[in-house]
Structures are given as C-alpha cells and as structure tokens.
C-alpha cells in the first residue's frame, strides 16, 4: 500500500518533532551527566581559567538557575524550546540564534560546495566505471576510492596544507577571509565524500547498464545515446539519490574536523567550544539544527526518489 504524499509529509513532520525532542533531551542529559561541576566549567569559560573564584561560580549558578533540581531545569528548558526560545549563551551572554546564525552560513557554504565538488568528481568517475565492471577504469576508480576513504580528513587536509600552502604558497593556510581560503576545506571535504559516492554510482550504473533491458534495447537497434539517456540513466541514479542523506551525515561529521583544521569559525568549531564550556543552550540549538538539516535532506531525497521511481510510490517491491 503506497503512502499518499500528504500522509508521507505528515509522518515525516511528526518524526522530525520526535527526533528534535530526543536530541534536545540527549544534549541536556549528556551535559548533566559529564563529570565535574557544570557551573564551574561555564564560569571558567566565561571569565578565564585563572580568574574564577568560588563566589563567581555561585553567582553564575544562581543567575542561570543551575541550582534548581535537574528535572525542574529540564522542564523549564523544554517549555522555552517549545515556544521557540533558545535563550542566551551561558558563556557570552549573547542570544543563541545570534551566535549560531552567522556561523551556520559559513558552514553551509563549505558543506554545499564540498558536496557539489564531490558530485562533480565522483559521479562521472563512478558512472564511467560502472559501464565496464572489472575493467581497468573500474579497478582504478575502486583503488583510488579505497585510498581516499582510508585517509582521514585531518591527515589529508594536513598534507594538503603543507604541500599547497606552506611549500608552494598557492593557497592560504587558514581562515575565511577570501573565496581562496575555502578551496582547501572544500577539497578536503569533497575527498571524504567522494569515495562512497563513486562506489554507489558505480554499482547503480553497473546494475542498470548490465540489466537485460539495456541489452534488449541494443538488440532492437536503439541508438547508444538514447539507451543511456532513456533506459539506463534513471535506474542508475536512483541509488545515488537514496545515498544523499548518508552524504549529508558525512558532511556534518566532516566539517567539525575541517573547521578545526582550517580554523574556520563555523558551527563545527562553535560546537566543540560550547561542549568544552558546557554551554547547554548553544549545544542544544546546534543539535537541533543538525537534526533538522539531516531530516530535511532525508525528506528531500525521499520526495525525489518518489518522483524518479513510481514503483516506490506503489509500495516498493513488486514480484
């Protein structure tokens, strides 16, 4: 039984709400459960490790309401979230949205460019490799993908910095002052995304190109370019679209390391800083942002798949 579009959207929205609640709760619980005094850590981040006194810690504890029972804090905080109030950063005192929004822009720009570069790099390579499974191109792409996949982002990024920025002085080392600054982060991110994408595209292509339908079209004398466009392309790209949410997840994982490495002031760095400082409102807002972005990517992929392959709309597997 196929889901109607309206029911699908309603179901996904309900899921997103549930995920948001779970993520918010986990953030709260994780920060509470970490060993050490929360107020002390926040105070240390706000005033500096050396200058913190017991009085300052107690003042902060009272100010932020950290002396209330944990369940009460959780309830009050959820109630605020439900009304769309993210509160202020415990460390800087700035509204959370003002902390997150500008940095989110930078991160999304790097993420989107990295995804685009990975698509431009891996899609043609994977599709070309899949036309002749076992051929030299297929083996070459597989070897390159395995090599890239086994090099962690921070190592590869480090090598690129040493080579292109320090030695050759072609590109800036760190920061985000000019578009040139984004080249290395984008390349490093794309290198992390490309191997999986190339493998998925290769398998989709190998399956569609090797399918009997393709051979039968050739036997009927259909021109090769028409076969590629009308018979092979869509089935070959279905797994690629289905893989996009996985890529989105890799992007969120990838930019944390990349922003640290290239000193980009995006939400990856903000997340690490806020976690160190136990800055609960910021951590929770970032967690929600990640969850909603991933949810949106999944929904987008799902809607695209339904448009591409009506068999999925009809309820999937047919005998």
């Amino acid at each position: 039984m196929g889901l109607s579009l309206a029911r699908l959207l309603a179901a996904r929205l309900a899921q997103a709400g549930l995920v948001a609640l779970v993520v918010a709760t986990l953030c709260f619980a994780a920060l509470q459960a970490l060993p050490g005094d929360l107020a002390l850590r926040v105070a240390a981040a706000r005033f500096g490790e050396d200058r913190v006194s017991a009085a300052m810690v107690e003042a902060l504890r009272a100010e932020a309401g950290l002396d209330r029972p944990v369940l009460l804090q959780y309830g009050a905080w959820l109630a605020d979230l439900a009304r769309g109030r993210f509160g202020r950063s415990l460390v800087t005192g700035q509204p959370v949205l003002a902390e997150v929004a500008p940095r989110l822009g930078l991160t999304l720009r790097v993420g989107a460019l990295g995804l685009l570069a990975a698509l431009l790099l891996a899609l043609p390579a994977g599709l070309a490799a899949g036309r002749r499974p076992g051929g030299w191109l297929d083996r070459g792409v597989a070897a390159l993908a395995a090599l890239l996949a086994s090099a962690p982002s921070f190592a590869l990024g480090g090598v690129l910095v040493v080579l292109l920025s320090v030695r050759l002085r072609w590109l800036p080392v760190a920061g985000d002052a000019t578009p040139w600054h984004l080249v290395l982060p984008v390349v490093t991110l794309a290198a992390a995304l490309a191997p999986g994408l190339a493998r998925v595209a290769r398998h989709g292509m190998a399956e569609a190109h090797g399918a009997y339908a393709t051979q039968f079209a050739r036997m009927r004398g259909v021109a090769p370019w028409r076969i590629g466009l009308r018979v092979v392309a869509r089935p070959a790209l279905v797994p690629v679209v289905a893989y996009l949410p996985v890529l989105a997840m890799q992007v969120t994982e990838g930019f944390i390391a990349i922003e640290m490495l290239f000193n980009l002031d995006g939400i990856g760095q903000l997340l690490i800083r806020s976690l160190m400082a136990r800055d609960l409102p910021v951590v929770a807002a970032l967690g929600l942002a990640f969850a909603l972005l991933l949810g949106a990517a999944t929904l987008l992929a799902e809607l695209s798949l339904r448009a591409m392959d009506p068999r999925l709309r009809a309820g999937g597997a047919t005998a």
């Binding site: 039968f216 050739r218 036997m219 009927r220 009308r230 392959d309």
Partner: peptide, 21 residues
Amino acid sequence: LWHSRTCLLPQEPAQALAPLL
C-alpha cells in the same frame, strides 16, 4: 549483427522492459 540479422526474445518481460519508461 543484432537488430540487422538477429534478435533474442527475452524470457522474462519483467526484465526486458526498461523499468522506468
């Protein structure tokens, strides 16, 4: 010589037809 001299009829229509056309 496919198409000009020979054509192999498929065993299973389900596999011979382009699935999304």
